[in-house]
Simulated scan of single mutants.
Amino acid sequence: MSKIIRIAAALLIDPQGRTLLVRKRGTQAFMQPGGKIDAEESPAAALVRELHEELGLRIDPQQAVYLGSFSAPAANEPGFEVQAELFRVDSAEAVAPAAEIEETVWLAADEVPALPLAPLTRDLILPLYRKALNAPR
């Protein structure tokens, strides 16, 4: 049985329809911004806290639209599975890498990133994002 890391993650989308990927210091894989959910914390509260710590982004939890729970092998912790509570956040705010974030990349829906991606991002979240943006509004 693999060990579970519970996280809250943001499918952060800018006014141009691009989504933000981040890379933590000392790691290779790009992934959605977000982070571990503390014991007494709701996923939405964790998301708000992590986006502020990692990107200097202040969001209202009401802005975060819950998209579901997704699981995949953890990118940076071998033998672990990451279980992400995923939220869509539309924001025009500027972001700046902070805390453990070393690099940020905005990705358009039709772009195939030439970057190493976390399994969750590559296999589940990016396909969902592309489908959401191509779907009739």
Rank of each mutant, 00 (worst) to 15 (best):
Glu103Ser: 14
Ala94Asn: 13
Ala109Glu: 11
Asp90Pro: 00
Pro61Arg: 11
Ser91Val: 05
Val82Leu: 11
Gly68Ser: 04
Ile59Gly: 05
Ser71Gly: 07
Thr121Glu: 09
Gly68Thr: 08
Ser42Asn: 01
Gly34Ser: 11
Ala72His: 01
Ser71Thr: 14
Glu100His: 12
Pro136Gln: 11
Thr27Gln: 13
Arg58Glu: 12
Val112Ser: 11
Ala96Cys: 07
Ser69Thr: 15
Ala9Glu: 03
Arg88Pro: 02
Arg130Leu: 06
Ile5Trp: 02
Ala64Leu: 10
Gln62Glu: 15
Ala96Ile: 07
Val95Gln: 06
Ala10Asn: 09
Val48Phe: 01
Leu124Phe: 04
His52Glu: 09
Pro33Val: 10
Val22Lys: 12
Lys24Asp: 14
Glu85Val: 00
Gln83Ser: 13
Pro97Val: 12
Glu54Phe: 02
Ile7Ala: 15
Arg122Ala: 14
Arg122Met: 02
Ile7Asp: 09
Leu55Tyr: 09
Val112His: 07
Leu67Cys: 04
Leu117Ile: 11
Gly35His: 07
Leu120Lys: 06
Glu50Asp: 06
Ala92Glu: 09
Ala45Ile: 06
Ser2Tyr: 06
Pro113His: 03
Asn134Arg: 15
Val105Cys: 07
Leu20Pro: 03
Ala64Pro: 04
Glu54Gly: 11
Val112Tyr: 04
Gly17Val: 03
Met31Gln: 12
Gln62Lys: 13
Glu54Asn: 15
Gly35Tyr: 08
Glu54Tyr: 06
Met1Ser: 14
Leu86His: 00
Arg58Ala: 05
Val48Ala: 14
Glu111Thr: 14
Ser2Ile: 02
Val48Trp: 05
Gly68Tyr: 02
Val82Glu: 14
Leu120Ala: 04
Leu20Lys: 12
Arg122Gly: 05
Gln32Cys: 14
Ala135His: 11
Leu117Pro: 09
Ile101His: 12
Gln63Ala: 15
Ser2His: 08
Asn134Pro: 00
Arg122Gln: 13
Glu93Arg: 06
Glu100Ile: 13
Arg18Glu: 03
Trp106Ser: 05
Glu102Pro: 01
Arg18Ser: 07
Arg137Val: 09
Gly34Ile: 12
Val112Gln: 12
Glu41Gly: 04
Leu21Ile: 10
Glu111Ala: 12
Lys36His: 05
Arg130Cys: 11
Pro97Ser: 12
Gly68Ile: 01
Asp38Ala: 14
Pro136Asn: 09
Ala84Gly: 14
Ala94Glu: 14
Ala135Asn: 10
Val48Lys: 14
Asp60His: 12
Leu51Asn: 10
Ile101Gln: 10
Gly26Glu: 13
Ile5Tyr: 05
Asn134Gly: 15
Ala114Leu: 08
Lys131Phe: 07
Arg6His: 15
Gly35Phe: 05
Ala94Lys: 13
Ile37His: 00
Asn134Lys: 14
Gln62Trp: 00
Ile59Pro: 00
Gly68Phe: 02
Pro78Trp: 01
Ala39His: 06
Leu107Asn: 02
Lys131Ile: 04
Ala92Lys: 07
Arg25Leu: 08
Leu115Trp: 10
Val48Thr: 15
Ala39Met: 03
